[in-house]
Write a protein that binds this DNA or RNA. Structure first.
Lengths: 331, 331
DNA sequence: CTGAAAGCGCTTACAG
DNA sequence: CTGAAAGCGCTTACAG
């Protein structure tokens, strides 16, 4: 049913090459025939086939976005939106893929994207085998990794300034006069987590007691785990005055634990989160937190990918996305 | 850099047609040459180009998922996950598109999908011009519309049983002894909303006073609007005993308004939501609500699309996705 | 059981 | 300024 370039050519009484010229705006054509062809295109509702074009140009105008788990990642919608908008602006469409926690599946998904000849892939992992990624990068590129540091040619990086965010939180607590500051971490291993590193550095800078570190390791980065971790914190360090948490979910769980323990937030104990998810502003009390600009994260990642598309050879330096302290009522 | 079918053919000492036969498992081939070709494929890491194949078969093994606004739709991640999983199972990849509230943009996005020759499109609208959709359906199909009733050849329907859900809610409230039952609606026009229709029908069935309908129209389907609508409800109908809301966000806002007005939930006033979003279980008090299985919604939509792909001619009857009452503490 | 030819809808040199 | 030929990487009849 579809109208082809040949249909247009016949109708306009020119060769298909001439039609191609006007479709691709290549010039070298008289204004008269250009307009005649344009009229026929309009008339027939002709749209060039991207798949035919892709076969010869080796460019599909598509990219892939692969995500650890769409459902559990609270940032996903906003990051995705950033990617989609940036891609659309450049005339690209994006394949969305979800991967299971399973290393074979991971490679399969990546290959399925390669089969469709996407021009590049953005990977936004929660879990992901770095080895698989590197192997894949050796025969397909460019790749962009969001917030996971992978040093490998062909893999571009977009990182969050989480370490700085942790310092922002601690500095703020110190400026409010708190000294006994603890942390609830959400994921192990502890010393690989930027937020923990930032916490430690800021504590050290303020000459606060890091020797007896008040860090509680939550089982998961969830509301429930935050609730339990806070109970543990209160039992182990009863004189804790302020707590910085790995993310907002943990913070909200922690607040509930405080309430149940008869500790008022922020009067008896201050709580500061990380991420600024949508509910952070609506919970009681509204959460003071370190905000990540998720939409921008998606946009920047896409721009980084386009940069690599323009310059195939070099892997560009990492791009960092800023964070910001949002003061509300919990601290 | 990519390995082609010809490379495999040369290496294996056969024609490309023979390679094609083993790749597509078409039989008509001796076991010996099949294995030899298979070994070469393995060896070279050959993967057939989907774009080359698509050019001749007119099938791309891709579908499009277009969404009103990824960011504001709280269901989006789960529905998307349902679509992705169902698609992946069948070897399909999916293009994700976000549309702005702008009718030209809408058609442009649809056409961009057509340019890539997707095999079908699932539309999951918040807003959407039905006329545009019908026009588009006349030259590109199949299309699936999620939860928006559009009667047009080539458009398959997947609907939620929202009317039933509203009845479930009212029946439950009646069974608990409530008689003065109000509703907070979230979107106009009132009589086009299934949830309102279900509410009215159930109220009528229980011979409750529908003459003096206690329906408040919230400005938006949001937390803030629910808060304001509840204040209005309490002012206008002070003796209201129970409130059914258009969605969970409204319900949570309403609960806050009750709390501030000194009305305890559920003791003084019962509140019932709709959707069962993630926070419904974590808010205080945990929300009684009508649950929508969002993941299943995505899966069913995809299966409906595949059904239409198999049988190009007929538009299948609408599929309905069930809802379920979840009793927690707010009612 | 195997292969040579034509063609899917375009673009890329090249010639005129 | 315009067009004929070749080819992108496959599959589809068809012949042997």
């Amino acid at each position: 049913v579809a109208v082809t370039m040949r249909d247009v050519a016949q109708q306009a009484g020119v060769s298909i090459k001439t039609v191609s010229r006007v479709v691709n705006d290549q010039g070298e054509i008289s204004e008269a025939t250009r307009e005649r062809v344009l009229a026929v295109i309009q008339d027939l509702g002709y749209r060039p086939s991207k798949v035919a074009r892709a076969l010869v140009t080796q460019k599909t105008d598509t990219i892939g976005l692969v995500v650890g788990d769409v459902t559990y990642n609270p940032f996903f919608p906003e990051v995705a939106r950033g990617v989609l908008d940036a891609a659309q602006t450049q005339g690209y469409n994006v394949f969305l893929c979800n991967i299971e926690e399973n290393q074979n599946h991971e490679l399969e998904v990546l290959h399925s994207l390669a089969d469709h000849a996407v021009d590049g892939i953005i990977i936004y992992p929660t879990h992901f085998s770095q080895d698989n990624l590197k192997t894949f990068a050796d025969h397909y590129r460019p790749l962009i990794s969001i917030n996971k540091c992978i040093d490998h040619p062909g893999i571009g990086l977009v990182m969050l300034q989480t370490c700085k965010g942790a310092k922002l939180a601690v500095d703020y607590l110190v400026s409010k006069g708190y000294a006994k500051i603890g942390m609830i971490a959400g994921v192990s291993p502890l010393n690989l987590i930027e937020r923990v590193r930032g916490f430690r550095e800021a504590m050290a800078m303020h000459r606060l007691n890091v020797a007896k570190e008040m860090i509680i390791q939550a089982a998961n980065p969830t509301y429930e785990a935050g609730y339990e971790a806070m109970q543990e914190m209160l039992a182990e360090y009863p004189d804790v005055e302020a707590v910085f948490t790995y993310n907002d979910l943990l913070a909200m769980g922690a607040i509930r634990a405080c309430r149940e323990a008869g500790r008022r937030v922020p009067d008896d104990i201050a709580i500061i989160g990380f991420d600024d998810i949508e509910w952070a502003a609506k919970t009681t009390p509204p959460l003071t937190t370190v905000r990540i600009d998720k939409y921008q994260l998606g946009q920047v990642a896409t721009q980084q990918l386009f940069k690599m598309l323009d310059n195939c050879e070099e892997t560009p330096p990492p791009v960092y996305v800023d964070v910001e302290l949002i003061v509300r009522e919990s601290a």
